[in-house]
């Protein structure tokens, strides 16, 4: 099995994954386990089913289908044998395990007073392999520097799921904290104090408060803390110069970020969106963008196994988007035209 695959699987599922071909094992991104249905993996931007001998197949019929016992054991390991201790995570539908890997769960929702209280009969698992890719921020960082203030601009990293937002954010945090600015003019700036509010425990993958990824020497982490509250706590208690958060999108997040901006703290955040147009059509993000909260946007896109990025300064976007009338609803054709399916 690839070295960074979490030790969650039991025999015989484990054996099947250990026999994966080398190229797939090294670029593994997702392992999708569904009870009594074909085992699927995502690697290098592609998907395939896995046969019992570990070989890959495009067709699910010959694939290995994990049984009930394997899924039960997987759930036990994911929850560290303690469903009672992860009730909050079950409500959100995912659990972060040792090593920062995120396991998404699907099952039957149990409602209490109309909201999801937890999941039961969990039979669908999506194990997303986290990896630290040192150096991926080096290409982005020079584009988001603020030379006057000798720090970074307020930055929003935008991409659809699965393109490496969190990986990039992680490396940006490390570089900002360590003062590796990758720019000649910024060589003597030194590191900045970074506060990370890690609501999903994905950025740092903390174990007992210690991050298992390298986030740099001047980084403080509030683990598993709701973003809005966490940002305020950070500002009050840890005097950060830069705050980094993952996946913003709710109104509370926006309010807290606005607070941080006015407190003179730089913000680096990520958001789910296909492109800038998507950002401007999501109410909360659009509101923030229109108030000029972000100084730069980083767009990630992926072709084959490679992640490409584009840095856009806010000045360019505002000109571009204010002049254009926004359609209220976009037709499915427009989506298809914009996002070619690989």
């Amino acid at each position: 099995m690839a070295p960074n695959v979490p030790d969650l699987f039991v025999h015989p599922l484990r054996g099947v994954l250990e026999r994966l071909p080398e190229h797939a094992a090294m670029t593994l991104e997702e392992i999708r386990v569904r009870e009594n249905r074909p085992l699927e993996i995502g690697y290098a931007g592609r998907y395939a089913f896995v046969r019992p001998d570990g070989s890959l197949a495009a067709d699910g019929r010959s694939a290995y289908a994990p049984g009930r016992e394997e899924c039960r054991a997987l759930l036990e390991r994911v929850t560290r044998h303690s469903l009672y201790a992860v009730e909050e995570e079950l409500k959100r539908g995912y659990i972060t395990v040792e090593g920062g890997h995120r396991v998404g769960l699907a099952g039957r929702a149990v409602l209490e007073r109309g909201t999801v209280a937890r999941l039961k009969d969990i039979t669908g698992f999506n194990v997303r392999i986290a990896r630290a890719r040192g150096g991926c921020a080096a290409a982005v960082l020079p584009g988001i520097l603020d030379f006057r203030e000798r720090t970074v601009r307020h930055t929003l990293i935008v991409s659809p799921p699965q393109q490496g937002k969190t990986t990039l954010l992680r490396d940006l945090i490390r570089c900002i904290s360590a003062g590796e600015w990758s720019h000649a003019a910024a060589a003597g700036w030194g590191g900045r104090k970074v506060g990370v509010v890690d609501e999903r425990s994905e950025i740092g993958a903390c174990e007992a408060g210690i991050p298992s990824f390298d986030l740099g020497p001047r980084t403080d982490i509030l683990d598993a803390c709701p973003k809005a509250e966490g940002i305020m706590m950070m500002i009050r208690s840890m005097s950060p110069e830069v705050i980094a958060v993952d996946e913003i999108g709710r109104q509370e997040d926006a309010d807290a970020l606005a607070e941080a901006l006015h407190a003179g703290v730089r913000v680096v955040a990520t958001a789910h969106a296909a492109d800038l147009e998507d950002v401007f059509s999501r109410p909360v993000l659009a509101g923030m963008a229109e108030r000029g909260m972000f100084g730069a946007y980083v767009l990630l896109s992926r072709s084959g196994g490679k992640v490409e990025h584009r840095v856009i300064a806010a000045e360019q976007t505002s000109r571009e988007f204010k002049s254009r009338p926004k359609p209220a609803i976009r037709s499915p054709d427009a989506f298809a035209a914009e996002r070619p399916v690989p």
């Binding site: 036990e76 044998h81 303690s82 469903l83 009672y84 009730e87």
Partner: peptide, 8 residues
């Protein structure tokens, strides 16, 4: 043990 919610 470990197989259900806290109350249970």
């Amino acid at each position: 043990l470990g197989g259900s919610g806290r109350e249970d």
